[in-house]
Design a protein around this nucleic acid. Structure first.
Length: 679
RNA sequence: AGCGGGGUGGGGUAGCCAGGAGAUCCCGACGGGCUCAUAACCCGUAGACCGAUGGUUCGAAUCCAUCCCCCGCUACCA
């Protein structure tokens, strides 16, 4: 794939936000780098079209709308407007932002599905679909749970998520239960339609070999294709969505019409601007998809196969971003580890540029990024304020006070060289999707500016040799000009202001990197500069951390407060003798360690009063760390027949209260010596 | 278990594919300087035997083998 610049116009897309909830910082992890990429390409005189839109279909939206007592359309509209506003406020500027419920997308989806049918890539098959008589609804994917036929564990409709991890075909799950009303579900035979994904294996292997973008996307997809490809069921029993041709009771699966949105939004852009959408989707102009790391499968396998099958061009690159952590904890709305863009960030008066800079410069694009208010404060204060902001301000204020205009002076060749090499490196880094690298390189020019200013001591020169001082300042203003251009993709709002401060009256967003070495004009009047980036005070950061921790506590309380798990049915009545058969004793844990190769198992040695401690294997690794178990007093069922688990013999069983997500070891109320019996 | 990604000074990173002299850069710590600037900026110092072990090599963070640990694929995720 040609690089910097592409030799043709390029289409950049972002993974579609699902119109079923608010925007959080995790979303921005994909959209902001994409916007930076697009702005950087434009600065490099590259013709770019940047499209996105809301993903509006699928069962979760239907269910959520029902709960709220509104129509799916109303729900979707609400969040569509929300995301549109958020993106504008964060200065993520799409050339088109539509919805997958737009007529354009319905039409394009039908076009593609019909082409796939015509070409023999779609076939019908009777399958058994779970159906809930109470809800009067078919239960796709996650909306049915039951027992895994392979391992007997509790499992979801499409996958045995807690047990063996196997993918489940519709109808395989035993004892299906509706996850919406918790009532029993039944199976009904239904005709559904499948896409012959398996026929695209060779195509995909070749396609992926040539796919640009980040390595994480390609490697992940190759791993899948090399294993096996099963045909995809592309229809669902729903009212809401794109109707499957000739079957009014079916809609196409949301993952069919969602990526087609990329095409539809390109068409909408073309209609609005007179542009040409076919050069991307039928021609060879490159298409670059920015997505979150969780939807690589769809973009690298299903989507190109569909496009190939229907006779359209395939993407040139897939750029998959790493996931986000909040305060070093895995992102989780229900556990409170979430930062909402609007209420937690913008509404507190933070400038969008700060978050843009943080997300772009924290770590490489494919790695996990940790959002922490403390680190946020640190990066902003030391880098944006201390290095870049301070250089621009000290320099422009000095120029304003002492000259009132851009002074006369020769350009220092070293300064020009530095600008040229930095610009080239930034362009290359952005083209490689290395946004942190680009940020660091750009920041190093600001650092160079500070050194240049410092070592030339213009504050001394101004008293001794005003001309020499003028030369230094003019060079510094040249550096400022280059910096503004280099930082515009990352911090567009602030750089727009800075551009005015150096006396430029053009639109900085439309300027190219070539302007960086075009000499600033001596005699240009300068206004008194204002500070661009102000320090984030400790109080403010503390306030934000308090909000976060309150939310986490509230979430924990909520989780603990409600019984959470369904109350299990009472077991049959027993005689005392039955109970007496159980030999339960107090024990003290002496050694605890994880069993390698196992996720859940711990190997324990428990003192139960005998000479030698007993070895017990417990499935508690997900709830307790080995070190926190050592020394605990526990209850052990000691006459259970020994069994080998993962090759380690277990001579007993620890008793614990089990509420699904939460598990608690049983201990004794008073300090009891090991060996005491429990009755 | 399998597949994929990763383990580099206190934290975060570069280098690894195409092995070579003192292992990069940022933050933090310490010392100094300067005072135009938002207690900012500049200069300097300390700190890692590059996850473990073994191997290939004149030479390995870089290549090979084995092992350990973390993360993702399995959630409300972009």
């Amino acid at each position: 794939m040609p690089n910097i610049p592409f030799d043709k116009a390029v289409l950049v897309t972002c993974g579609l936000p699902y119109a079923n909830g608010k925007a959080h910082v995790g979303h921005l992890r994909t959209y902001i780098p994409a916007d930076i990429y697009v702005r950087s390409l434009k600065k490099n005189s590259q013709e770019v079209t940047f499209v996105c839109g809301s993903d509006t279909h699928g069962t979760p939206i239907v269910v959520n709308a029902e709960e709220l007592g509104i129509t799916p359309k109303e729900l979707v509209q609400k969040y569509h407007v929300h995301f549109d506003e958020i993106f504008k406020k964060m200065d993520v500027r799409f050339d088109a932002f539509g919805t997958t419920d737009d007529e354009t997308n319905h039409n394009r989806t039908l076009d593609i599905v019909e082409k796939l049918i015509d070409r023999g890539y779609v076939y019908p098959k009777i399958i058994e679909i779970a159906y809930c008589p109470q809800c009067d609804r078919f239960l796709p994917d996650r909306y049915v749970s039951g027992t895994c036929p392979h391992c007997e564990e509790k499992a979801r409709g499409d996958e045995c998520d807690q047990g063996c991890g196997k993918h489940l075909e519709p109808g395989e799950l035993r004892e299906p239960v509706c996850t919406i009303c918790q009532g029993p579900a039944e199976y009904k035979e239904q005709e559904h339609f499948f896409f012959k994904l398996s026929e695209f294996r060779d195509f995909l292997l070749e396609h992926l070999e040539n796919l640009g973008g980040t390595l994480n996307a390609r490697n992940y997809a190759l791993g899948w294709v090399k294993q096996e490809l099963t045909d995809w069921c592309i229809t669902r029993n729903l009212e809401w969505g794109v109707k499957f041709p000739g079957h009014d009771d079916l809609v196409v699966y949301v993952w069919v019409d969602a990526p087609i949105g990329y095409m539809a939004f390109t068409e909408e852009w073309a209609q609005a601007t007179g542009g040409d959408w076919e050069k991307f989707w039928k021609g060879d102009s490159p298409i670059v998809h920015f997505i979150g790391g969780d939807i690589i499968y769809h973009h690298c396998i299903f989507w190109p196969a569909m496009l190939k099958g229907a006779g359209y061009s395939q993407p040139s690159a897939v750029v998959a971003s790493g996931m986000l952590k909040i305060e070093d904890k895995t992102f989780s709305k229900s556990r409170g580890y979430v930062v909402w863009v609007e209420e937690d960030y913008l509404d507190h008066g933070f400038h969008p540029d700060l978050l843009r800079y943080y997300l772009a410069s924290y770590t490489s694009h494919t790695k996990e990024v940790n959002f922490s208010w403390k680190i946020f404060q640190d990066k902003i204060n030391t880098e944006l304020v201390g290095v870049l902001g301070n250089f621009l301000y000290r320099n422009l204020l000095f120029a304003y006070k002492n000259f009132g205009e851009i002074p006369e002076g020769e350009m220092d060749p070293e300064v020009i060289d530095k600008i040229v090499s930095t610009t080239e490196e930034v362009i290359q880094a952005n083209a490689d999707y290395e946004f942190k690298k680009a940020a660091d390189i750009a920041m190093s020019l600001a650092s160079y500016g500070n050194s240049y200013f410092q070592s030339n001591e213009p504050w001394k020169l101004i008293k001794e040799d005003k001309d020499a001082c003028g030369k230094v300042i003019k060079n510094c203003i040249q550096l400022a000009k280059a910096l503004i251009l280099l930082f515009e993709p990352m911090t567009p709002g602030s750089m727009e202001v800075a551009w005015k401060q150096i006396g430029m009256d053009s639109d900085v967003h439309e300027e190219t990197y070539e302007q960086a070495t075009v000499a600033v004009v001596s005699g240009t009047k300068l206004e008194k500069p204002k500070i661009l980036f102000t320090k984030l005070e400790d109080d403010k950061i503390q306030e934000m951390e308090d909000i976060s921790s309150k939310r986490v506590k509230a979430a924990m309380a909520k989780e603990a407060g409600k019984p959470e798990v369904e109350i299990e049915e009472y077991k049959d009545e027993i005689e005392y003798d039955d109970f007496a058969k159980l030999d339960i004793r107090v024990g003290k844990i002496i050694i605890a360690e994880k069993i390698k190769k196992s996720k859940k198992l711990l190997r324990l040695e428990v003192d139960i009063g005998d000479e030698k401690p007993r070895q017990v294997v417990a499935g508690l690794a997900e709830y307790y760390k080995p070190e926190e178990m050592v020394g605990k007093t526990v209850n052990v069922l000691v006459n259970l027949k020994p069994v080998k688990l993962c090759g380690v013999e277990s001579q007993g069983m620890l008793l614990a209260a089990d509420a699904g997500e939460r598990v608690s070891l049983l201990t004794t109320d008073k300090d009891m010596g090991p060996g005491s019996c429990i009755r």
